[in-house]
Each structure stands twice: as C-alpha cells, then as structure tokens.
Computed example of a mutant assay.
Amino acid sequence: MMGLGPVRFERSGDLKIVGLQKSYTAESRNQIPQLWQQFAPSIGQIPGQQGMVAYGVCLHAKPDCSFDYLAGVGVEKNANVADEQASVELPDRRYVVFEHTEHVSKLPEAIETIWSKWIPESGLNVSTDAPCFERYTEEYDPEAGQGGTEIWIPLVE
C-alpha cells in the first residue's frame, strides 16, 4: 500500500498519555496540526514524561466520523495531570501496526486506506471500540514531517 511500510503485530503495554484534546469531525480533522503546534512546546516538560515518543490518540469515534483526538506523550502511571491537560489510560492489548513512510500530511489518506481496504481484506477482527493511535518515535522529524511514524489499530482479543 502506498505510504505504508511492513505490517507487524505488537502488544502495547499499559499506556497513560497526557496532552491536549479536542473534538473533530471529518470536515475539521484537517485542523489537527494546529493542536500539535499548540502542544509541541510542552514535549519534554510534562511531569512524569517517559521518553520522547509522542502519541495522537483517536477516542470516542462515532458513525458520523466525529471523534476526540489527544496529542500527547506517555507518562508514568501516577503522574499528575495539569488542569489544562487531558489524559487517557490505554490497557495493554494487541495491535496491528503500520509504518507510515510518507509526509505526516498524508496520514489521513493512509488511515482511510487501512480502514477501507487493508482491514476488510485482512480478515482480522479489529476493535472499533478501543482507541487507535499514531505513534511518533524518536526518529520522527517534526521539521521535515517525516520518519518514525506508526499507526496502531487495536485487535479484538
């Protein structure tokens, strides 16, 4: 699939992610980069932050394509959350993981391809109730908008 590298399967481990959260629709999702611009200066400054990996978590997806999106970082389980921040705890589970090899602006197209083509053809039982997320590893270059980007889709266990 264009822009998607090899697929692998992984367990996430328990994750607590803290950051900024907003609600979006299919029409407004192109505004997610502004949320990242607002959150980015906080990366490395969040109390209890673990490493420099960042997450874009899609929560509460509805049939009308509206959803909540949290731009955040992983923190220690007992880390305090500031009033202006949101947090989500994701329990350990199994995911199918896609490496995204193109510019970050192509993520919506890659996600659409995964959900409309790859998943139906794979025969895998994916969870539509659990959050899916983007994972930006230390190799991600925010200036270039490329490298170290993964899309994690939860599987039914």
Rank of each mutant, 00 (worst) to 15 (best):
Q34H: 13
I43A: 14
D141V: 11
P154R: 03
A82I: 05
A130V: 12
E109Y: 08
K117S: 12
E89Y: 08
T113L: 13
A79D: 08
V73W: 09
V104Q: 06
E109G: 06
Y136K: 04
P142W: 01
A130P: 12
L107V: 13
Y140W: 12
I153L: 03
R93K: 13
G74D: 09
F133N: 01
Q49A: 06
G56R: 04
W36M: 03
D64F: 00
A144F: 09
L90H: 02
E121A: 13
C65W: 15
D129V: 07
S105M: 14
K117D: 10
S122D: 06
S105Q: 11
V88R: 04
E112V: 06
E139F: 04
A130Y: 14
P154T: 04
A144T: 11
A130T: 10
S116N: 06
R94A: 14
P47A: 01
I46R: 03
W118Y: 04
P120K: 01
D141P: 08
L59E: 01
V126D: 08
A144P: 11
S127L: 02
A71D: 09
H60I: 06
N125C: 11
Y140P: 05
H103L: 08
V104S: 05
V75F: 13
F98S: 08
R94S: 14
I32S: 07
Y69D: 06
W36N: 00
F39P: 02
L35E: 13
P154A: 03
Q85N: 13
A61W: 08
C65M: 15
D68K: 09
Q49C: 06
E102D: 15
A61R: 10
Q45N: 12
R94P: 10
C65P: 13
H103D: 04
D92S: 09
G147N: 09
N80F: 15
D64V: 01
N78E: 14
V156A: 14
G147Q: 00
G44I: 06
P33H: 07
R94Q: 12
L107E: 05
P47K: 07
C132V: 08
F67N: 04
G74V: 00
W115K: 11
A86L: 05
W36H: 00
P63Q: 07
N80M: 12
P47S: 06
Q37L: 14
R135K: 12
S122A: 04
A40S: 04
E109S: 05
H103M: 03
E134L: 09
L90I: 13
T128Y: 15
L124F: 15
N125S: 15
E84H: 14
Y136E: 10
D68T: 05
P108T: 00
A86F: 09
E102C: 08
C65A: 12
R93Q: 15
M52P: 10
Q31K: 04
F98I: 04
N125M: 13
K117V: 13
K106L: 09
H60K: 14
E134M: 06
P120D: 01
V57I: 05
A144I: 10
Q34T: 02
G145Q: 02
G48L: 03
R93V: 07
P154E: 07
K62A: 14
G51S: 00
E102P: 07
F39A: 03
D92T: 00
E112W: 04
G48S: 07
E102Y: 12
V126S: 05
